[in-house]
Amino acid sequence: MAKSNKMFADKAFELVKELERSSQTIPPFDDDGVRQVLEEIKAIFEENCAQAANYSTSGDRTLWPLLNFRHAALQRNKRCLLTYLYKRLLRIKALRWEFGPIIPADIKTSLCEPEVNFFNTYSKSLASYMRSIGDGQGIDLTGDLRPPKSLYIEVRCLEDYGKFELEDGEVIYLKKNSQHYLPRAQVETLVRQGILQHIA
């Protein structure tokens, strides 16, 4: 972008747009972008401070609109930045529901450290909440995501998984490309992890 066209908060808005457009599970944390926005905020703030001091000594009213303008730019920067972070949090939360308490390694590289911390705390807090429901009986809320249509579903195995024991003790061998007819409730997690594919 040509330097002359650049406006305040362009970079911050860019962050939000980029995130919104990306179709990845979660794009890498834009360390550089965030730092640039923070620097811009700081720069604007310092300029404003200097002029505010100038204003109070000289009482020059012509500075007033400029002060207001800069303040608005600050607010917008801040708002865009926090939106960016918050939108990322939403995606991180979705990870917990999709993949369980452990982040897959390839996704983990996209997160920054505070985000990993957030995920861990969120995961812990959710787990302890689920355990505490119903006087300590607990419900796994990450299961039963769709209304049940039938007890058994037909699944195809997408990778060699190995032995899988059903609740009634029966052991089946999940081999790549094999098809099985299994109780939905018990294999739902495997389907979500992409090991089994629900067919028909």
């Binding site: 700081k42 972070l85 911390n117 705390t121 807090s125």
Partner: peptide, 14 residues
Amino acid sequence: NVEQYFQQVALQYM
């Protein structure tokens, strides 16, 4: 948790 995250990543530098 959310507040702490915001603090760590952005707010503390503002």
